[in-house]
């Protein structure tokens, strides 16, 4: 692949949606931006070794974001997540997503927002597709009840 052109095409086609999905997953535009930029930077570096670029980018960016969230949750210096101005109803959506377990959240965002396959979600989570379905089912149910409670 022509490094600059091919990857830039993928970037233009995917990065926006990837960033939005990562905001949904992490609740933090900064983490989302870091994860997207880092994933694409690694794709440029490792392009020769990547067989299927698009799923690779999604998987890597979500793993990076997930690891960063874990790191921050364990780091005493990172108890605060910066918040940003976001249009309604995104803040309440993100607040509800935060109430899901990380696996449920990742499954719901990747599958139901980013339209990634359950196979890709399974690869990102390191679990089986059957388990993805469990996460999806539990996550959707929880998200629905949380948002309905907010509506009420």
């Amino acid at each position: 692949m022509d490094e600059g052109k091919g990857l830039e095409d993928v970037y233009r086609a995917q990065a926006g949606r990837m960033w939005r999905a990562l905001v949904g997953f992490s609740g933090d535009p900064e983490i989302a931006a870091e994860a997207v930029a880092e994933a694409f930077a690694r794709a440029i570096r490792d392009e020769d070794q990547i067989r299927d670029l698009e799923p690779w980018l999604w998987r890597v960016s979500f793993r990076l974001a997930s690891a960063e969230l874990k790191r921050r949750s364990r780091s005493s210096d990172w108890t605060i997540a910066p918040t940003y101005e976001m249009p309604d109803p995104i803040p309440e959506l993100i607040a509800a997503l935060r109430c899901l377990s990380p696996n449920q959240r990742l499954a719901v965002v990747l599958h139901d927002y980013a339209d990634r396959s359950t196979l890709e979600v399974a690869e990102a989570l390191g679990c089986s597709r059957a388990t993805v379905h469990v996460h999806l089912s539990q996550g959707r149910r929880k998200l629905r009840s949380l948002l309905e409670a907010t509506d009420a």
Binding site: A15, V23, A35, L64, A67, Y113
Partner: peptide
């Protein structure tokens, strides 16, 4: 419900992609 995320305006990170030195740890941001 998740379509609400489409209202977010993503930043253009392409310059950042080219500027940065990607990390080596598989699952960690630099």
């Amino acid at each position: 419900t998740l379509r609400a995320l489409d209202r977010l305006e993503p930043p253009d990170l392409w310059d950042d992609v080219h500027r940065r030195s990607p990390g080596s740890d598989r699952d960690s941001l630099p």
